[in-house]
Design a protein around this nucleic acid. Structure first.
Lengths: 246, 246
DNA sequence: CGGCTCCAAACTGTTGACACTCAACACAAT
DNA sequence: ATTGTGTTGAGTGTCAACAGTTTGGAGCCG
């Protein structure tokens, strides 16, 4: 039912940029839908009919089906057996649960990253904090959020643990759709920057436990607010069309 | 290819046990293959051809394909585009990475579980330790391993975090296939029991940080041995040739 | 007027067939 | 003997069609 502007998934033209795209059809559909969902162009609650999608994208139902299956195991859509797929939405409870797991993963990441710290990493983190301050001064909330995400991801990347990176990526993807909520929850940008500085100091001094502890407190700031009960933030996203989830 | 003993997945009779199984075909295939892999009846490295599986199970390639896709995102098989699927095997490095993530998840679990501790939980844990001691006395290593898994899972279940439980289950499933290795790594059963007692005391006294720290040390015992370089344990499972099933 | 039954449209689950790719093997040339 | 090339065959990627189920509503009954 979505708008008709198809993205020409099935295009056979090889002129698309210099990089040769040897992806299978369902992989392209998967990537396309993933982008549509993550960018909130397909908001939570949207029903995804196989035939409609297939026609819209110019492919058969097979690849669409396969793509939906993959998205389901990634948690971006939920399939109700014989009832079709829906862009999944997180309840306040589920959001909180994912947030807790994210905290645990980041703590592991920073513990692993500290002994592997390089001067380049410290420099990069320092640069990110500086840019964050710029954004805070300009009230560029979107920019700040992006930099903040990069800051946190830097530790995960530096951990050297591929499994951890993969899990973290999936988790952040899901939580990212509620960026508005997370941001509103955070409150003062200045305080966040100060916390980042403190964390960076602990990392530079090579103290994994202290860094992990600080990070834990840092992450808990928005979590506590959510627990306190600002449900309205979710009312925006939780679209109760008709079909009830589970 | 593989042996013929099919498991009658496609059976349409509703007489199968009292429990009504309203699962779709691919869900049944998925569950079946999952069991086969986890029980090591399909050892790592086994090539899974769609046509062969489909014929063997009495279904079409569609459901098999879908099941393989799900297993892939769960990490139990790896699909090489246009080359088919293979039962995935963990390298020493990957095993270690997963182990680290498991540690982080369990620490989160015990932190969440401590404030929610009930007398029933403490009693259950106490009972598990007692049974472990029995097994240790009888040199019942398999029994001990099972009880140990239950002990650790108890905290995850008590955490009340559904997402955490799901991730933990998947992780343990994958690591579980290397049970032999993990066991050999652990060494003294008595020491393990003593550590369990100490952890239980910390939980009973309502000290999440201490419990988490103790758990961390407890989990790290086999991890350190693995880091030390006992690769031979993996040689057992890493089947290099293109050997046929059984 | 409200509730129940039955019917039809729509959609998913499944199947079998076709097209295409890649890997291995054989053979020829250096 | 080794390397490069052509061929072949197995097996995946994709499609269109069939069958079963669910949903929503029209019609009937209380």
């Amino acid at each position: 039912m979505a708008a008709g502007a198809a993205a020409e998934i099935a295009a056979g033209d090889g002129s698309r940029s210099g990089k040769l795209e040897n992806l299978t059809l369902w992989e392209r559909v998967h990537g396309f839908l993933r982008q549509e969902i993550l960018s909130n162009r397909l908001p939570p609650g949207t029903e995804l009919a196989e035939v409609a999608l297939a026609e819209s994208l110019g492919v058969s139902r097979g690849p669409v089906r396969e793509a939906l299956g993959r998205l389901a195991t990634e948690g971006l859509v939920t399939v109700r057996p014989r009832r079709g797929a829906v862009v999944s939405s997180l309840s306040k409870q589920e959001f909180l649960e994912a947030y807790q797991v994210r905290e645990a993963l980041e703590m592991l990441a920073i513990r692993l990253a500290v002994p592997r710290t390089t001067p380049e990493l410290l420099e990069r983190l320092q640069g990110l904090i500086a840019k964050m301050q710029d954004c805070a001064g300009r009230d560029d909330v979107d920019g700040f959020f992006e930099l903040n995400a990069q800051f946190h991801r830097a530790f995960v990347d530096a951990s050297g643990n591929g499994r951890l990176m993969e899990l973290y990526r999936q988790l952040v993807e899901q939580l990212g759709r509620y960026r508005g909520s997370s941001l509103a929850l955070r409150g003062s940008l200045k305080r966040s920057i100060a916390e980042h500085r403190t964390i960076l100091r602990a990392v530079a001094s090579g103290d994994p436990d202290r860094a992990a502890h600080l990070l834990s407190e840092h992450i808990r700031v928005p979590q506590r607010r959510l627990e306190a009960g600002d449900d309205e933030l979710f009312a925006l996203r939780t679209i109760p069309p008709k079909g009830e989830v589970r």
